[in-house]
C-alpha cells in the first residue's frame, strides 16, 4: 500500500491487514501451544545419543514469517580439553529448517 492510497483511504485498511496477518500466526501458535516444547524434547533426545551437552545451553526458536517459518536449534557443546594449544571453548551445532521441511517432519509423527 503506497502513501497516496493510505492518505486517500485513511489508515484503517492497513490496521486491518496487519491484524489479519498477525492473528493468523498467533492463532496457529496458541492452537498448539506446546509445539516448541515437544520439538525441544525430541530433538534433544536424538542429539544426546551421540554427544553430551548442557541442556541449559540449548535454544530452540520458531520464527513465523508470512509464507515461510524458520525453526532454529542452537546447542552449545563443550569440547574435550587437549593438552596442547588454546582451543575454542565450544562448538555450536546449529540446525535450520524451513517451514516445508519442518512441517513434513511434524506430519511424519514428531507431533
Amino acid at each position: 500500500m503506497n502513501l497516496l492510497s493510505m492518505f486517500r483511504r485513511g489508515s484503517a485498511p492497513l490496521a486491518r491487514e496487519r491484524l489479519q496477518i498477525l492473528l493468523a500466526h498467533e492463532r496457529d501458535a496458541f492452537d498448539q501451544p506446546d509445539l516448541l516444547g515437544i520439538l525441544r524434547e525430541e530433538i534433544l533426545a536424538v542429539i544426546s545419543r551421540h554427544v553430551s551437552f548442557d541442556p541449559e545451553k540449548v535454544q530452540i526458536t520458531m520464527d513465523r514469517g508470512k509464507t515461510v517459518s524458520t525453526l532454529a536449534v542452537d546447542i552449545e557443546i563443550p569440547n574435550r580439553r587437549r593438552s596442547s594449544g588454546p582451543m575454542r571453548p565450544y562448538t555450536r551445532l546449529m540446525f535450520e529448517a524451513d517451514a516445508a521441511t519442518a512441517r513434513s517432519q511434524w506430519t511424519n509423527g514428531l507431533v
Partner: peptide
C-alpha cells in the same frame, strides 16, 4: 473516524 477510514470499522472488527 470510522467513516473517514481512520479507525477500524465495525465490519473490520467483526470479521477479524
Amino acid at each position: 473516524r470510522a467513516a473517514r477510514g481512520e479507525m477500524l470499522s465495525i465490519e473490520d472488527v467483526l470479521e477479524i
